[in-house]
Design a binder for these strands. Structure first.
Lengths: 212, 212
DNA sequence: TCCCAGGTACTTACGCTGTAAGTCAAGGGA
DNA sequence: TCCCTTGACTTACAGCGTAAGTACCTGGGA
């Protein structure tokens, strides 16, 4: 009855995910991962071809944990719900989300979400072709915003402050008047709000394109 | 007259950029970089604090090479020109662009571009506050699209083909009808066109928000 | 002229990385 | 019973970033 603690690919990936979330992507090494599953480094290679596969697996794990919302009929609300789901699952694993956003993976996990988004767009009345364009536009925005959001929480070392201070110094030398003018709004960033703003922009543009 | 070949921070960063473009980011090591400059690894530390600073420097180098377009009066055309300039300079250094897009850097190099974009938005009639939101939305989309574009050119190893084939297999099992329906349009991606489509979407939404 | 201070480059070394290669014990099918 | 697969182990190698110490060369003050 001791096969209970047998190493499996799933256990390796789960351990890798927690390791990444605790120590960042840099903190993931095959030796540390092996130690986390209670084994020597080289034993991992019985379950996983190499480190890159581990990283891909971690990224897929995050996607798979995304819970898809039930379609409600209103295509805009449905797209928004899908985007929300994507964003939430990314934000709940900020370090691993970097992987997901940075590498494009042809993972099976994201297929269901893409299908749901395309279904909503088709229901709205877009052609199969334009639905793809719309999906790609929304997805690009989504990746960009979420990336900014997860990157602006860099395990808070105090270096940010000096950087901001330096930026301010550059601004006060008003070679950049428009920048200086907007400085108070640039200084802080409410990610939730920026996300909503941009998504609204895209959805309303899609809607008016539909009525054209 | 032999100070001609003295090592400088600039030469180090320039060599790092070409190294990154030739071999990818993984191919950049302090030893190889030193060899490229004609020096031993540790000598680099006389000009650069550590490897991270080298990477930041490479990213800034790419931004600095971006040529800003002259403002022409039409705010939409101006924003489009700025976006084009950003995209072009990123695409011309695909590997280094990953760095630029992935890390958020408070570099001085991007200040001029941000200022120009904000100026165009202010000229259009946006408030200083909303101009920032608009800029962030466009920038998020820009980062997302360009990231997808530079990542889909992964020094062409043939593994892409098998991945696409696998995706097709998943599709034919029509658990995802909308996906299957759009499969022919998903199979290929004209990056230029997707970029234009999304940017048009955002700009038209901004315009109608302005007239509201 | 001499001398020396400072900066540049070099050498050595440490601990870490991913992984190729070979060994060995346990368990299940013939 | 034997054998053969499977998974874990050990050893080893080449490469990494960089801390620490050393040697040289060059320009300026005495």
């Amino acid at each position: 009855m001791e096969p209970r603690d047998k190493v499996t690919r799933e256990k390796v990936l789960a351990a890798a995910l927690t390791l990444v979330e605790e120590n960042g992507i840099e903190g993931l090494s095959m030796r540390k991962l092996a130690a986390a599953v209670g084994v020597e480094a080289m034993s991992l290679y019985n379950h996983v071809p190499n480190k890159d596969a581990v990283i891909d697996g971690v990224a897929e794990l995050v996607i798979q944990r995304m819970v898809l919302p039930e379609p409600a009929g209103d295509w805009k609300a449905d797209l928004r719900a899908l985007a929300d789901a994507f964003r939430s699952s990314a934000i709940s694993h900020p370090h691993a989300a970097r992987l997901l956003l940075t590498r494009q993976l042809v993972s099976g996990g994201s297929l269901a979400a893409s299908d749901a988004a395309l279904a909503a767009l088709r229901r709205a009345g877009f052609s199969a072709s334009e639905a793809v364009h719309a999906l790609r536009a929304v997805l690009a925005f989504l990746v960009g915003t979420v990336l900014r959001e997860v990157e602006s929480t860099p395990a808070f070392d105090g270096s940010d402050l000096s950087a901001v201070a330096r930026r301010r110094a550059d601004l006060s030398a008003d070679a950049f008047p428009s920048l200086a003018e907007s400085a108070p709004f640039l200084a802080s960033c409410d990610h939730e709000r920026e996300y909503t703003y941009g998504l609204d922009l895209l959805l309303s543009a899609l809607e008016s394109r539909l009525n054209r």
